[in-house]
Amino acid sequence: MKADLRIPLAVAAALILAAVVAFGAPHVVGDYFVRILLLIALNSILVLSLSLSNGFTGVFSLGHVGFIGAGAYAAGILSLTVQQKKALLPHLPDLLNWFSLPFLPATLAAGLFAAILAVIVGYPLMRLSGYFVSVATMGFLIIVNVVLINASDFTRGARTFTGVPLATSLPWVLGWLAVTLLVLSRLVYSPFGRRMKAVRDDTIAASAVGISVLRARLVAFVIGAFFAGVGGSLYAHYLGSFSPNTFYFAMTMNLIAMLVLGGMGSLSGAIIGVICVSILSEVLRSVERGFTIGDITVPALFGASQIVLGFLFILIMIFRPKGIMGDRELTFGLSGRSANHNQKEGKDR
């Protein structure tokens, strides 16, 4: 047990360093790099929350972005000012239209809303396994999208939801990333976490030894959804304006690519996946618009970056299906025992 606690400690140490970066970065580097850092941290929260069900519990959900979208809209509705609500959402029920929440409570509420939604959705769906749960959760994502487009009293429908205060800053996101990492590392490397992994590795054996499969999956699903909702709120307050299709298949694909690349059974792997995909996308995006070296002009090949990412994804699937980290954790050398412990666990599969 002692060893297990060292991962959170290592994470916390790294995050204190990150906090220094967070407050220092804007003074040292430009807005563009701050934004890249912020997006990496924000996507890390989303991918970590996704890894709980998809990686650690073996329930491969394609509906995670539905919770992110629900969280974004919930937070957006809560934090619009009263005047904005009157202008943008004139048909909002009286219950919601007389107040405006600050950033933090709105974000917590968004997380709670997503978590409650996850209880309702997860209670039936977590009984399914394999690709059936993937297809069913994909159905959930589509239903969320349809509801967001049609519940126009709350969401403005297909029209852009706008006016959300731009409150998301690098310190906020890193703070939430720290919370996410602490909660998830405590959970994943606890006895309950081992139950989750047992459910993932052998569902029948797990239930034979008395583990409640439904409960393990549901807990993972709901906690994951909470942080997805939080991430959704951070996204909403980062973008300021968004529409239902912001939270749809493109984002799903992006998060899954990050998770799979990094390694589905590892928290540090999730973050490494986010960093790799983010940096690669940024580099490719600047390269694909064409460039000139001496006399050679490479014309713009817009769209090439997506294809490169797709091939990379397939190569990972074929040659390193467990991603960069697999089940291992990066612990900054602070807890060698813990790493061994994890490797042993990995062999059990």
Binding site: Y131, S134, F313, I314
Partner: peptide, 10 residues
């Protein structure tokens, strides 16, 4: 399933 998603994407 993920590989087939990647093929779609490509």
């Amino acid at each position: 399933l993920l590989t087939s998603l990647a093929v779609t994407y490509i």
